[in-house]
Design a protein around this nucleic acid. Sequence first.
DNA 1: TTATAATTGTGATGTTTGTCACGCCCGAAC
DNA 2: GTTCGGGCGTGACAAACATCACAATTATAA
Lengths: 187, 187
Amino acid sequence: MKEKLKEHIENLTPLTDDEFSFVLSHFSFEKHKKNDFLIREGENVRHCYFVVSGLLKLVFNDKDEKQHIVSFAMEDWWESDFSAYFTKTKAKMSLQCIENTTVFSISLDNYEKLSTELPKMERFFLKKSNSGHIAAQNRILSFLTSSAKERYEQLLKQYPSLFQRVPKTLLASYLGVSRETLSRLSS
Amino acid sequence: MKEKLKEHIENLTPLTDDEFSFVLSHFSFEKHKKNDFLIREGENVRHCYFVVSGLLKLVFNDKDEKQHIVSFAMEDWWESDFSAYFTKTKAKMSLQCIENTTVFSISLDNYEKLSTELPKMERFFLKKSNSGHIAAQNRILSFLTSSAKERYEQLLKQYPSLFQRVPKTLLASYLGVSRETLSRLSS
DNA sequence: TTATAATTGTGATGTTTGTCACGCCCGAAC
DNA sequence: GTTCGGGCGTGACAAACATCACAATTATAA
């Protein structure tokens, strides 16, 4: 588990063993079961999560209780309701396990401490944030340029494993179409 | 002009005058006319821009030469093709002036120098990047949860000035609907 | 095992939206 | 002035998609 986090960080910036122990001391390791909530809509968001194994969904529920999936969080992803996390406001979204999941979590205090105490890590978080921004922009682009069918095919190509791991209803609410439409797209 | 940048940064972190001069020395000030390109699709992206005045569009052109507006960049916004900027690859999008525009620009080298030399600024860029990520996520959410009409009304509420400054065709291609549909929504 | 719930496909129908077509208005260029 | 083109509205039609309904199959739990 530790190794997973270490390797992940070292993809962007090398760390000595001492530095990594120091980094690690700012995180907690957590195991969660399928359907557990890491973040509940309306509550405070104490942590940001690094996914070691498993699968989560970041979900927004509209007034009609219809769920919309903003993001699937897979192995090696960072996820949270970042808006609520950074501004210390209540969560607008929920983060829930689709499978049994293990994560490293970090509080905002520790996030900021770590950033100031170890500049490498601030640089690391900056790069991660930039990637997150770019990924989100690509998703916007896919809504602007592509039909439901094309978005479906892009997803299939990029994350083929999702189609075995996740009920189609969830894929539909990620793609922004109804379950029935998705079903007809696949045939 | 300088003051605009200074105030903008000081919204998030205080700066001494010396620090600000140091910051400023990493930027260039540029004036551009309506229709000028700051970034052209297919070319290298040398700079990231802070908009002092005016209005720009960040545009993606699909295979059918249809333009899709990823973002309008207004006063106080940071904009670039961040993916191309950070990874030193060719631009997938263009950044073009809708009005006469003034900006501060910073090269990637200077961005990185500034970040390492002045940790405050790295913290600043991190916060900006987070906001960008969150803003993009909200836009994704609006595609998932809202009809064209609702997205139109949200935009009208958030940026009423756009409706005087920008031809409806551009608003349509930001909202992801045809010009004709947008026209019918407003009535 | 048996009962219960979740998942998925598919038909019927109506709404939303895109596309093509046309006409009007208005400002810029000549 | 006249011409030309961009911006904008709107009608007609077709395509894409949502919604409702129902059935069949597959987990899941008691």
